[in-house]
């Protein structure tokens, strides 16, 4: 599923792109997974097709998806997550939630130490 919040200051195409990046990198969308057509996603989200097209174009530019007239838009191989990194993230997220931290708090904690890690 993909969600779109128009009250969010993040532009709609960026919300779509960001969620798809997350779903692909986390392995939720497997290699070869076929994405809905631009028209379907745009009509379901009640936005202009150009917005979805822009998100897809950026994902294609980043090498995460590939589009062809015959096969549609699919997730490209080689985008799967680093298993060790995912396990570490899982442990950190579990610990953060146990301690009552929100997603925002957890991400802030990572950002705070990010620059100090060599």
């Amino acid at each position: 599923m993909i969600t779109l919040d128009l009250s969010d200051p993040t532009p709609p195409y960026e919300q779509i792109r960001g969620q798809l990046v997350g779903l692909i990198r986390s392995g939720v969308l497997d290699v070869g997974h076929k994405l809905p057509s631009i028209r379907q996603l745009a009509s379901d989200l009640r936005i202009a097709p150009g917005t979805v097209a822009r998100a897809y174009k950026e994902l294609e530019g980043a090498g995460l998806i590939e589009s062809s007239r015959a096969a549609g838009t699919r997730v490209r191989p080689g985008q799967q997550p680093d298993t060790a990194l995912r396990d570490a993230a899982q442990q950190y997220a579990t610990r953060a939630r146990t301690n009552g931290a929100s997603l925002s708090d957890a991400l802030s904690a990572v950002r705070a130490v990010w620059e100090h890690v060599s």
């Binding site: 599923m1 993909i2 969600t3 779109l4 919040d5 128009l6 009250s7 779903l23 969308l29 997974h33 076929k34 994405l35 809905p36 057509s37 379907q40 996603l41 379901d44 989200l45 009640r46 936005i47 549609g72």
Partner: peptide
């Protein structure tokens, strides 16, 4: 119709 402030949801399965 969807209110401007409502969160919109879409499936990623092609129909």
């Amino acid at each position: 119709s969807v209110a401007e402030r409502d969160v919109r949801v879409a499936s990623l399965a092609p129909r």
